[in-house]
Design a binder for these strands. Sequence first.
DNA 1: TGGTGGAAGTTGAGAGTTCAAGCAATATTG
DNA 2: CAATATTGCTTGAACTCTCAACTTCCACCA
Lengths: 173, 173
Amino acid sequence: MNTAPAASSAPAGGPRWLTDEEQRVWRSYIEAATLLEDHLDRQLQRDAGMPHVYYGLLVKLAESPHRRLRMTELAMSAKITRSRLSHAIARLEKSGWVRREDCPSDKRGQFAVLTDEGQEVLDRHAPGHVDAVRQAVFDRLTPEQQKSLGEIMRIVAEGLQPNGAGADLPWLR
Amino acid sequence: MNTAPAASSAPAGGPRWLTDEEQRVWRSYIEAATLLEDHLDRQLQRDAGMPHVYYGLLVKLAESPHRRLRMTELAMSAKITRSRLSHAIARLEKSGWVRREDCPSDKRGQFAVLTDEGQEVLDRHAPGHVDAVRQAVFDRLTPEQQKSLGEIMRIVAEGLQPNGAGADLPWLR
DNA sequence: TGGTGGAAGTTGAGAGTTCAAGCAATATTG
DNA sequence: CAATATTGCTTGAACTCTCAACTTCCACCA
């Protein structure tokens, strides 16, 4: 959803428009990404009572030593801003799935800790979520396509990473 | 962000967990999608004063006959709900980039029409947006990868489409 | 022709996100 | 060691999105 004046590319320094084929690829990407995010959000909101991102946060915590992570680490790992994470953790705390703990070695620091309830919610709804992901993505792709998707997305993600040879951001603002 | 108890898959009817490799692919997808959407939103918000989705709506209108589309058609084409579109068009109307028009043949119907101002905003910011997309995606992928990405995302999108051999939804609720 | 069911679109409230500003604690530097 | 800059995280307001009504109008059919 974004480009195309008339023909393909401009003569010299003008904007390098997307070719028709590039446009088709981009459009497919946007559509799939929109539908997929929407689909997973809806599935998890219905079944587990939280959006997809929040579920992802619980998973990250569950995989971490002592089920805990510093706020900034969690934010970086989930690729979201600290602000967004602050609000998210506040909400997850209200639901009883996460608890905050002070960091002993740095009085500014906070740990987000997965509670037992949080772990239970995760255990209870993981199968349904995996199914949704399978049905929407993996079951429809050949092994080669899956591999390809992984490589492609890894490249794109790296390019947008604060460090990743591309950006100059102090990490997402 | 979502799956993995310990090993790969369960014996019988149990949930089919993602393999380690599938998990890596999925993680890469989520990260790239999150970073990309964030990046484009920020770019467009800064330069053009609207989020990526809204920009996409203007593009759809610009490509349509008489720069207009019925609300439902626009919503379907952009893969968003009617409700979301209603709010979005209200906002774009306030900004002066879109105007609503009654449909003569169906008194319930509304057209969303791109205004001249809207077209100008689009013309003014398209180059910057194309650049952003190129830098983040196309410049980093080989032609084969681009082709592959297109095929993969087309498949995923089709699977989540209301009709597309998969869902039973009255089109997104 | 007058119900009745469905389609088109909107609305408002609640939830989530962004952005800029802010506070407190740590690191750095002269 | 006292300024000063930086880091870690939070906050509130403005904005966007979702969900569940709700209104209006069309289409169908007896």
